[in-house]
Simulated assay, not measured.
Amino acid sequence: MKKSIAQKLLLKVLLGAALASPAINAFAQDTKTSGNPVVEGWYADPEAKIFNHQYWLYPTYSAKYDEQVFMDAFSSPDLVHWTKHSRVIDTSGVKWVKRALWAPAVTEKDGKYYIFFGANDIQNNNEKGGIGVAVSDSPGGPFKDYLRKPLIDQIVNKAQPIDQFVFKDDDGQYYMIYGGWGQCNIVKLKNDFTGIVPFDDGVTYKKITPEGYVEGPVMFKRKGKYYFMWSEGGWTGPDYRVAYAVGDTPFGPFKRIATVLKQDASIATGAGHHSVINVPGTDEWYIVYHRRPLTETDANHRVMCIDKMYFDTDGNIKPVKITNEGVAARTLK
């Protein structure tokens, strides 16, 4: 059957619009689930947030350290269809960062959006780098250097200043939990995020390292309890995984309870360095993490995935089942 001129013109318009549209996960076009990975490309260490009734993912660009000079972000109305926001932060906006731009933590305060990041992979206190912060008027950037210097640029309690996580407690106080090299600190942020201040006991850097901790801390509060999660194992290997503890305060003490996320030899390896999403007003939880496809051996070939996370009646986190299907669409009110 011949197409009319009008039909041909319409097809051209539709094709042009499709090609010009932002990148959306192709898997989601023919199914009702997100699919894992949720987006194309090599990404790791995802930070998951909800801003303006949208889900947002902020990952590390997974490449060689010298190539890690920018970060992309992704937004979605339903966890299934994702829009890419390219280079929401890069070294043109943060001049002191030269390489190894890692593991963003993002928060909103007073109408501004702040992205905390590790940079330059410093190995001692004489090198320039550490944890920085940039600010934007939009969750999609562009983010520009907030302090023109690192927020934390020293190795304290043997914790490399990377893998920061920003936690807001119920009283409005913001804390930052961070640390690599098997050590974890918690610090109290100034109200304007321009620095850190001592705790009431005079200590500025509190060590809260639990057994097995390697990196990638995450904290959230549920039913009056503080859940502290972290990554264990080597990030390049198949045994990378996530464990957790529960405490009565943000400072613990935290005693390791169990592993909750790990590889499945039939699906993927190296499942770790995660974050969590709680749908507001519900007890629905998702875990967002990276993993390595079974076909890949390159350490940097990591992808972002989402699966459901559940609790038992005692408040323990159930072991997460990693999937290829991902999660069903879930819009926000």
Rank of each mutant, 00 (worst) to 15 (best):
K8D: 07
L9R: 15
K12P: 04
V13Y: 13
A17Q: 15
A17V: 15
A18D: 06
L19G: 11
I24P: 00
D30T: 15
N36D: 09
P37Q: 08
E40I: 09
W42D: 15
W42R: 13
Y43S: 09
D45Q: 11
Q54R: 15
W56D: 03
P59Q: 09
T60Y: 02
T60E: 09
Y61G: 02
Y65P: 05
S76H: 12
H81D: 12
K84M: 04
R87I: 01
V88C: 05
D90A: 15
S92W: 02
K98C: 00
A103M: 08
V106N: 06
E108R: 05
E108C: 08
D110H: 14
D110F: 13
K112H: 12
Y113I: 05
D121E: 05
N124Q: 11
N124M: 07
G129A: 03
G129W: 06
G130A: 12
G130M: 12
A134R: 13
S136E: 09
G141T: 13
G141I: 10
K144L: 06
R148L: 12
P150R: 11
L151M: 13
I152K: 08
D153S: 14
Q154E: 14
K158V: 10
A159S: 10
Q160A: 12
P161D: 11
D163L: 06
F167Q: 05
Y178G: 01
Y178M: 00
G179N: 03
G182I: 04
C184A: 11
N185T: 01
V187K: 00
K188I: 00
K188G: 00
L189I: 01
K190C: 02
D192R: 04
F193R: 02
F193I: 05
G195R: 04
T204N: 02
I208Y: 13
G212C: 07
P217C: 11
V218T: 11
M219S: 10
R222E: 14
R222Y: 14
G224S: 13
G224H: 10
Y227N: 14
S231E: 11
D239I: 10
D239P: 07
Y244G: 00
V246Q: 07
V246M: 03
G247M: 00
G247W: 01
P250G: 01
P250T: 04
G252V: 01
F254A: 06
F254I: 02
R256K: 13
K262R: 05
Q263S: 10
D264S: 11
A268G: 07
A268N: 04
T269C: 09
T269P: 05
A271S: 08
D283S: 09
E284G: 04
Y286D: 07
Y286T: 03
Y289D: 00
Y289G: 01
T295W: 08
H301T: 03
R302K: 14
R302Y: 11
V303F: 03
M304G: 01
M304R: 00
M304D: 02
D307L: 00
K308R: 15
Y310E: 08
F311P: 12
F311Y: 09
N316H: 15
K318I: 04
P319M: 01
N324L: 06
E325I: 04
G326C: 10
V327R: 02
A329F: 02
L332M: 07
K333L: 09
